[in-house]
């Protein structure tokens, strides 16, 4: 049975891609509200797949994913849109809209959530200031460096004040100073009451966070430490 205190549950989730490569096998763990959880594992372990399943971009082959006791994959189109607006996602490959400026990329997410023009005009510069990108507000993604694109992606995930932030390798392209900044931002947001799910290879981050770590290898959960360190 699902406890009330639990926010997200992966219940024996398996994913086999159409080319029959097994990305996840019987993954089971749950996440509490306001938790800061890191998912670690070598490349190809299935971390991105896990997040795609959560956001409904891919369907699990077996198993169920619950968000606040609701099966995410049983939602209809309209409900899944509403669910996605409550989640802020930072994609590993950024996935910015190439024909929109930095401002418009972030504004689009707010428009999609039905926010007013006044809110958009005041919140977009604010969130860009938070990720230190104010000078690039009118640039297109192709005019930004990898790290700058990553920060736009983070700003976009933050701007709707979601209940959960999912960050897939958000520091992959950043130098140590920027990495530290991003982690500080995520920590701050977590302190304000947002659940954070972070995937990373970066040992330093895990050690400095000193929080819960779920390790995945070849599609299986091999370790779940309440205050873990990154062990290879």
């Amino acid at each position: 049975m699902i406890e009330l205190k639990v926010m997200i549950v992966f219940d024996r989730v398996s994913k086999v891609y159409p080319d029959s490569s097994v990305a996840l096998e019987e993954v089971t763990f749950s996440i509490e509200p306001k938790e800061f959880i890191s998912i670690v594992g070598p490349s190809g372990a299935g971390k991105t797949t896990l997040l795609k399943l959560f956001l409904g971009e891919e369907k699990p082959t077996r198993g169920v994913i619950y968000y606040e006791s609701v099966n995410v994959h049983a939602l209809d189109k309209k409900e899944i849109n509403e669910f996605r607006r409550r989640v802020g996602m930072v994609f590993q490959d950024f996935r910015l809209l190439p024909n929109k400026t930095v401002y418009e990329n972030i504004a689009f997410t707010m428009e999609a959530a039905g926010r007013t023009d006044e809110e958009i005009e005041s919140d977009v510069p604010h969130v860009l200031e938070l990720v230190d990108l104010t000078p690039k507000i009118w640039n297109f993604p192709r005019e930004l460096s990898g790290g700058e694109k990553q920060r736009v992606a983070i700003a976009r995930a933050l701007v709707n004040e979601p209940e959960v932030i999912i960050a897939d390798e958000p520091t992959g392209n950043l130098d140590p100073v920027n990495t530290y900044d991003v982690v500080q931002i995520l920590k701050k947001i977590n302190n304000l009451g947002t659940t954070v799910i972070l995937t990373t290879h970066n040992k330093g981050i895990i050690d400095s966070l000193n929080g819960r770590v779920v390790a995945i290898e070849q599609g299986r959960v091999v370790r779940d430490d309440k205050a873990g360190k990154y062990f290879k």
């Binding site: 971009e57 849109n81 669910f83 996935r95 809209l97 190439p98 428009e111 999609a112």
Partner: peptide, 16 residues
């Protein structure tokens, strides 16, 4: 098409 899928994933409705 990629843009369209991103719009979907940030929760934009079909009409939008």
């Amino acid at each position: 098409r990629d843009e369209i899928s991103v719009m979907r994933l940030v929760g934009a409705s079909t009409t939008y």
